[in-house]
Design a protein around this nucleic acid. Sequence first.
DNA 1: TTGACTAAGTGTTTATAAGACACTATTCTG
DNA 2: CAGAATAGTGTCTTATAAACACTTAGTCAA
Lengths: 203, 203
Amino acid sequence: MRVTVDIVLFTIRERRLHLLLIRRLAEPFAGCFALPGGFVLADESVDAAAARELREETGVENVYLEQLYTFGEPGRDPRGQIITVAYYAMVPQTQLLQAGTDAADAAWFPVDALPDLAFDHQAIVAYAHTRIRNKLGYTNVGFELLPAKFTLSELQVVHEAILGEPLDKRNFRRRVQIQGIVKPTKEWRATGRKPAQLFRFKD
Amino acid sequence: MRVTVDIVLFTIRERRLHLLLIRRLAEPFAGCFALPGGFVLADESVDAAAARELREETGVENVYLEQLYTFGEPGRDPRGQIITVAYYAMVPQTQLLQAGTDAADAAWFPVDALPDLAFDHQAIVAYAHTRIRNKLGYTNVGFELLPAKFTLSELQVVHEAILGEPLDKRNFRRRVQIQGIVKPTKEWRATGRKPAQLFRFKD
DNA sequence: TTGACTAAGTGTTTATAAGACACTATTCTG
DNA sequence: CAGAATAGTGTCTTATAAACACTTAGTCAA
């Protein structure tokens, strides 16, 4: 039995949640889009394999990788009995541009307009999307999608992209301030209109 | 690389949350207590392996098995590179007695008084306990710990055992009734004192 | 310079959910 | 028949979530 890892790498582009796909060169599913990933090596932890594959295939490193679920139905890979441990990660739009240029045949797609995917990667993506939607309510998911300093409007865009629905500006701002997950800086960003105060995450 | 499954099987005994452990006969960790589990077979799904191992080692079948997490640190098994996919399941006290007699060298332990465990099974147990505590708030976890008909006091004991803290009787009953997760039957149980109405789960 | 446009920023009210809290009722036992 | 044990029942308070609109600061163009 062989074990692979697959990574759902999210980012926000143009106010929409995107994820990174790679065009497969080898069979099976040659030419198809698929999640970045690959085999766990000998004497390598599964977590380490996920970090390594992400780095090798997308150039992204030093991000928080969270394990999602292990998919182990026979027949999910035509090469034989191969189970995969799925992970997700997030990068801010700034970092993703570098990543996109490093990686060959990698491209960002909006989660609500994905091409056909190899293997059972469609199911993995759906699982990842559900997970981050749920975690948004009770954790700091979304922080990794932004640079160190950001405006509250930018943070709201992240939340709206993940949830797929608009949020009330005042309720949103009150919640993040009460929960104490951000703290204001003394910097302001000139965004072309009225300047916006920059915040950073606490801790 | 080989893949195993391990199952954390919960039940409630004497108002406390227990789980089932098996005394290992073979090396490594011979003589130690460990979670029921074993290797995934050729052409077997991981889910099916969990169900099969649970049946073989404890006699329990036809229960809902939920995947918890995959543990894949090298060194977690002295036999080599073996990752394990952890599951949890729950059985009512009635069923567990039969299971306990079927299985050789299986025993129930309170989760807050476990013996030393083989491998990284201590971490798996902690993960499972956290998972069911969290799920108690927003799902119907706990239903599988009770027979088809039960009193509200029995349901409260289940919740208290999982949370590890007492609950207010009136608030608890109001919540389960408002959430509409139980419906009353026309039966009453003579429990020795004042009879209690029996309920069943909706759907 | 001024008017139009764009995004930032700001409070109150209402509805819903959660938590604290104590007594009566029924049955069995001695 | 008195006492012990568990079942069952409402109200008030507090916290949390949701709905809702206008003012302000800056840019750009006429």
